[in-house]
Each structure stands twice: as structure tokens, then as C-alpha cells.
């Protein structure tokens, strides 16, 4: 059920009042963190980092939203994690292999992988993110069809793999062959686009913690993706979220899996360098 109603109209009237005032919701204090997560706030690891403190999106949510992430049973995203676990050992494709044929026990072999993506792929001559790596394995090693972006299977596998790295600090490579991708991502982050002429930084660098109409702006950290969002009523990828942001500022979004979003994923991951992986998180 899409929740729409007359209050949306009257909300316009109070928009001025709610516009960019300090956060009204107390976030980040009330509840215990999910298993394996020690902190939702870390200090920047490099001197040239644009933020004084790095805060997970968890910090900005209401206690009720946080509560749904505290316990893995109550977190609805684990419906997908469980499915991913089944798929991990499901044989598919001409090579008669499953993920576990090469990677054995995911809790060991994927313990850090989810914190290091996107990562340079020598064979492809470009970085790949987790979704792309999964599909690369499927087509090259399993000789199976690639999963569609945002399909249940790809979301389930991404959530399962990244959950194995929960608690691991985000650490992406930004030098060497990754450097031009990092620079490209940074460029996209700060470039104003769309009818509203806004950049990622317009909201997530300058105004995090403040209300934009009825929403509390976060730093746009990526450590919780794939994330279960109430708005979506399901789990979704980071690139889906990027698209949503671009639509909000009335820009033409890049495509999921595009080089642009891949570069932006790398750059935004770096902005959250050191934050523990929370995937799958729960957000509004």
C-alpha cells in the first residue's frame, strides 16, 4: 500500500517551518547495536577527509527504526539473507558449480570481502562492486546466467555475502588503478545536476543531522547496503538508492550498475572508511 493522503498537501504548508531546522528526532542513543557492530561513529582515517566525524545512517534514525535492526530476527532483511544462504550452495550453470564449490564456508571466505568493495578486477580492467563480482562468478566460473540487477536472487546473495563481513571496517582501495575511478566518483559527488541544481554534497555534507521537510538528513553512508527500507517495503541496492536521490533532485539518474554509479559507490565508500559494515541495515 502506498501511503498517500491529504496530509501530504498540508505538509507543504508547514514546509517552511520544518525546513532545515535541527533534527527533532533523537537518534543514535536509545538502543543496542546489532551483533558484531561496536560503533556507529568513527574518526576520519585521512587528513583530507571532508568530514570531522563519520556517522552511520543508523545514527540518524528514530529509536523504533533502530530497534528493527537491533535483532536479526526482527530485521525483515534477514528473509533475503536466509535466501542468499540457500543460494550459496545451490548448483547452477553448465560448470555444475555453486558459490560454495569455490568459496566453501562463506562465514570464513567472505569475512572481509563485503568491506572492501568495489575492488579492482584485473581480468576486466576495471573495479567491480559486490553485485558485479557475484555475476562475474556466475557467468565465468559457474557458466550460469547473470542475475538481473535488483532481482530477488541478486539482492539475497548480496545481502548474505555482505552480512558475513558485518562489523568489519569499510576499507576500499583508492590508489593505483582505482585512483581515476575515485576521482571520477568524487567529481560526481560534488557536481550539481538536475532541475534543482544540487549535488550529493548539498544535502549529505553540509546539512546532515538537520531536517529537510519531514526527513532527517544522513551523511549518505553506504555501510548498511543492501538495506531494508520501509519506503520500498523490501531490501534494495545502493544503486537503487542513488537513483532515488537523483530523482528527488529532478536529475536523470544514471543506470544501476553503470560506471558512474560504480565510481560514486567507490567514493562514497571512502567517505565511510572505517565504519563497520552493518548490512543489511533497516532504514526509513
Amino acid at each position: 500500500m502506498e501511503l498517500k493522503n491529504k496530509a501530504t498537501v498540508s505538509a507543504l504548508g508547514v514546509a517552511f517551518a520544518a525546513l532545515l531546522v535541527p533534527g527533532l528526532l533523537a537518534g543514535g542513543e536509545a538502543l543496542a547495536l546489532p551483533e558484531g557492530i561496536e560503533t556507529v561513529k568513527v574518526a576520519p582515517t585521512s587528513k583530507d577527509h571532508p568530514l570531522d566525524e563519520i556517522l552511520s545512517g543508523w545514527h540518524f534514525r528514530s529509536p523504533e527504526t533502530q530497534a528493527l535492526q537491533e535483532d536479526d530476527f526482527e530485521n525483515p532483511a534477514f528473509l533475503w539473507v536466509e535466501q542468499g544462504e540457500e543460494l550459496w550452495s545451490t548448483v547452477e550453470g553448465a560448470a555444475n558449480k555453486s558459490c560454495s564449490s569455490c568459496h566453501d564456508d562463506a562465514s570464513e571466505t567472505m569475512a572481509t570481502a563485503g568491506a572492501n568493495m568495489p575492488k579492482w578486477n584485473e581480468a576486466l580492467g576495471k573495479p567491480v562492486n559486490l553485485e558485479q563480482q557475484i555475476n562475474h562468478c556466475r557467468t565465468e566460473r559457474m557458466e550460469a546466467d547473470a542475475w538481473k540487477w535488483e532481482s530477488t536472487q541478486l539482492l539475497a546473495m548480496t545481502a548474505y555475502v555482505r552480512n558475513q563481513s558485518r562489523g568489519e571496517p569499510v576499507a576500499v582501495q583508492t590508489d593505483g588503478p582505482m585512483k581515476p575511478w575515485f576521482e571520477k566518483g568524487k567529481d560526481i559527488y560534488y557536481t550539481r545536476v538536475g532541475q534543482l541544481d544540487m549535488a550529493c554534497s548539498s544535502c549529505h555534507e553540509g546539512y546532515y543531522g538537520q531536517q529537510i521537510r519531514a526527513d532527517r538528513l544522513s551523511q549518505g553512508q553506504t555501510n548498511g547496503f543492501p538495506t531494508y527500507r520501509f519506503k520500498w517495503q523490501k531490501i534494495g541496492s545502493l544503486h537503487r538508492r542513488f537513483k532515488g536521490c537523483m530523482k528527488n533532485i529532478r536529475a536523470t539518474p544514471y543506470k544501476v550498475g553503470s560506471d558512474e554509479f560504480l565510481a560514486l559507490e567507490l567514493y562514497t565508500a571512502w567517505r565511510g572508511q572505517g565504519l563497520p559494515v552493518e548490512a543489511p541495515a533497516v532504514r526509513q
Binding site: 500500500m1 530476527f73 528473509l79 517495503q233
Partner: peptide, 14 residues
């Protein structure tokens, strides 16, 4: 006892 089931719960209102 806690239970959860995957279902889109299409409301018939959309």
C-alpha cells in the same frame, strides 16, 4: 514466539 513471513502484502489500494 516471534514469526515473520516474506510477503508483499499488496493492499488492493494501489
Amino acid at each position: 514466539i516471534k514469526t515473520l513471513i516474506s510477503h508483499k502484502m499488496e493492499s488492493g489500494q494501489r
